[in-house]
Design a binder for these strands. Structure first.
Lengths: 213, 213
DNA sequence: TTCGCTTTTTGTGTATACGCTTTGAGCTAG
DNA sequence: CTAGCTCAAAGCGTATACACAAAAAGCGAA
């Protein structure tokens, strides 16, 4: 693995996880020394983070970790609704039915237990679903936009506490979306996606407002 | 201006203009020598082009200019419809009415003459319109996605010959979109955008199929 | 004490050297 | 004649040195 990839992965994880808080200055020499790489690969890693929107210019020469608040989450979901509703429609039209039928069954049979690992298992299943959507959509432009959204979504998930009831409901919502795609019902898939994202956003914003009274 | 920015701008223009044809290998040392910069800024420029999707990995070590054919244009417009319909809705809800009213008048009063410069004047007006949309949308995620689309759209425009009738029709379509946004009519703006993109895509694909018989 | 100027320092932008991997060409053996 | 192996060369990934610019700190004068 390349040093620039390791540096990028490390910084990405730290920003998504909140270890590097918004406003933290990201200096080439400082981060390069900390992560044990030279300036050249670190420079490339930082460039990618800037392109992602996770790091921004504070002034001409100083880079900082981007802020991320409730207003950003609203905008994120605004874009996400657009992208994922379109993706759901395209997947319904083009996706392989058996793939999404299998996913629908996986969601229908998933009964999240009260336990520490439930959220991990949930996110792993979501990840499989996302990959299936990406393949079915078969549109690099749209898939690229959705990947960028997911990068930022990881920050939103961290701000919101995982809530068991929400997880159970979300699994059911995904079952409906997957079933609609398997059935080739584009409108149902799009509207189910809209509803899912509505509840997801509401839940996240509720969680944040309650977490910071 | 930084050397990496100049290198990026030069390569971008050459790829968009077809000077660097799809499949052309993009080597660091070769391009650096050609454009008179060292490998370090050239590396950054190429990295940005890869992130844009204009350059892709052919094998592990060799980068080439991405291909761009009719199928890609279809996919491009598929994504573009999604992004720009959403943007039109948001602009209608949030945009400053006077800005789009002024743009509507500019489009309504624009009477493209038969002349060499008409296409340039048309694209300049479109550019003003795009900038107004970006500001009204006020959503970095969506705006970023649209900017990427525009980068690729420049390649599509080059493949299609500018057609006078199409330009006149397009100006009228934009007038309707701008008027709808100025009036705060989100649905009309979105549907007018859909229609505009339908005609734009049809025109481009027609132009290509006729240009390569 | 405060404002302004000068000097120093820190960090980015660029160039370049070095090492390793990969690819291609040429030679040899079957 | 073909296939495989070896060697060479070209290119990428990384490290580092140098230059320039901006910001901060220190000093001096009002």
């Amino acid at each position: 693995m390349r040093a620039s990839d390791r540096a990028y992965a490390s910084l990405l994880e730290e920003i998504q996880g909140g270890v590097l808080a918004p406003g933290t200055v990201v200096g080439e020499v400082e981060q390069a020394a900390r992560l044990g790489v030279s300036r050249t690969p670190m420079r490339e890693a930082i460039g990618r983070l800037v392109a992602d929107g996770l790091v921004r210019h504070q002034s001409a020469r100083v880079l900082v970790v981007s802020g991320f608040d409730a207003a950003d989450i609203r905008r994120l979901f605004e874009a996400r609704r657009s992208f994922e509703e379109t993706a759901a429609r395209l997947a319904a039209a083009r996706g392989e039915s058996v793939v999404f039928a299998a996913l629908a069954i996986a969601f229908e049979q998933a009964h999240p237990e009260h336990g520490i690992l439930e959220a991990d298992a949930y996110y792993a299943l979501i990840s499989r679903f996302d990959a299936a959507i990406d393949e079915a959509v078969d549109n690099a432009y749209l898939v690229h936009a959705m990947r960028t959204i997911r990068t930022h979504l990881a920050r939103a998930r961290r701000l919101a506490r995982d809530n068991h009831e929400r997880l159970v409901a979300s699994v059911a919502e995904h079952a409906l979306i997957a079933r609609a795609i398997a059935d080739g019902d584009a409108e149902l898939a799009a509207h189910a996606t809209h509803i899912h994202l509505h509840y997801a956003l509401t839940s996240i914003l509720d969680s944040i407002s309650k977490g910071h009274p």
